[in-house]
Design a protein around this nucleic acid. Sequence first.
RNA 1: CAGGAUGUAGCUCAAUGGAAGAGCACCGGUUUUGGGAACCGGUGACGGAGGUUCGAUUCCUCCCAUCUUGACCA
Length: 570
Amino acid sequence: MRWSQAFIPTLRDDPAGAEAISHKLLVRGGYIRQLMSGSYSLLPAGFRVRNKVRAIIAEEIDSIGGQEFLLPVLHPAEVWQRTGRWEAMGDELFRLKDRRGVDHVLGMTHEEIFTLVATELKSYKQLPQLWYHFQTKLRDEPRPKSGLLRVREFVMKDSYSFDLDEEGQAKQFDAHHAAYTRIFKRMGLETVPVEASSGAMGGSDSVEFMVQSTAGEDFVAFSGRCGYSANVERAQSRIPTVANTNPLEATEKFPTPGVRTIDALASFEGGAAAENQIKSLVYIVDEDPILVLMRGDHPLQEQKLADHLKAGELRPAHEDEIVDLLGAHPGSLGAVGVSDVRIVADVGLQGRNGMTTGANEDDFHLRGVDIERDIDVSEWVNLREVKAGEGCPSCDGDLEVYKAIEVGHIFKLGAKYSKTLGATVLDENGKARPIIMGSYGIGLGRAVAAIAEVHNDDKGLIWPVAVAPWEVIVTLVKTDPDTMAAGEHLYRDLKAAGLDVLLDDRNERPGVKFTDAELVGIPYRITVGPRGLADGNVEFVERAVGERSDIPLDGIVAHVKGLVDQALAG
RNA sequence: CAGGAUGUAGCUCAAUGGAAGAGCACCGGUUUUGGGAACCGGUGACGGAGGUUCGAUUCCUCCCAUCUUGACCA
């Protein structure tokens, strides 16, 4: 490609309102342009990067037996209604009607449609299967942000495995795990696989591939000693046990005028330390209220609650709903004497007595509460969100918590979709069995952004060779006939060697060209000018290193080719 | 959906209740250049609808859009 003919609109200024480094640099480097919130056009350079990411993924998924499909984006609502996700997905699902008034959805994922195709599988002899496609997903995100990191329209590689039994599915899951590790490594991403919640996808085992980055939106709990890693949505931790104090024969109601918070009760005369309080939270789960109990100083991890309840929709109850249910306002709530509401309590409260909690009467609390004795707990669940500094659950080290970008996610789906959509095969005994499935996703744009987020400096992007839009740029420092001729020649030789080359033949000041090359982030630069040519040399710079060296013109192609091959070999 | 912020030229930003400016970009010309050069000339903007006012880009209301802080996901 000749830069003089190329559309690579670089910008001097950061786009207004951009926070994430990848967002700023991808816009400034001429890779992407925003159409609207959460929707970006990929410009030629951006498209090239994405295609390299795509190729790496396709190669690795093919290597574990993947077969590429292309399934529709427009789906009949009826299929989503059959699996219950028409309701479960809520507002995030784009819905539309056709001219006859029939409901349709724009696919946000493809479990349903792939499963439908899989209903043609009839015999265990046809299994296992591994199917995938790269397809646009549309999600009406509540809040798109950070450029390509969180958008409403994006291309995802999603694969789906089909097996006769859990054992076969486990193999495919492990194969994906390994393939994902290779994929991300090849594109220059250091990932950590973490235990995760499978959320609305519905599944059992679930592993997310995380890239540590302050631009990320997930929090990962990590033990440097043993390597334990888990999304805080799932993470466990060890905390010191709290000894019970002040047990009472029976609960005792006492006035607490104006006390509405844990802190206020802790500092209130006759109150109790946060660790000796029971925090009572009311949630509405798919229309029904439930009462959630936590130790006063423990935060609730909502996803843990949602996972436990297998909830579709989960939200804190509104104040009027709370008053209707318990007869008091938030700040004076408790579970003592409550019998007609499901009560889910955190395991951190098990065995506790002498606790203080709201009396379900404004301005009154109860002390001396023995949880097992006084509260009708329906189930004990781990609901606490871990904090940095707490003990690792699998070694005696401490946990740290860092921000991360989720670049890949793999799930075991079991028979959830095959059962409801009728994807069954006959086993050796001629008995129909629902196919056991797994699903595995990687967002292309997000991967590109994650790479950009990690590989940059104050001058711009620094693409790993494997995903760079061009592997090498030839910068003509002057556009006189001799330099042009030498540059053109070199350009042809580099291309003949199989390299992706960009020739900067623009009639611009050298400074402009150097700065642009650095912003765009091309890994290797060859500078051609009259000065060097007089000695038979060109100048060579590796973007990541920045040091210039003179290399004979007749050896430069082999030099660069060698470096590129080495980089691609990993 | 709730809180906060912002909407002025292609981009990044100013100013103003009374004829809207800059830098960069772009077009024409001079300059022919080893780290975002100079000069001359030129094109080009007040998100939308109401309201207050003699007069609104400015003040008010609503709408829309974008960004940002909280729950979903690749």
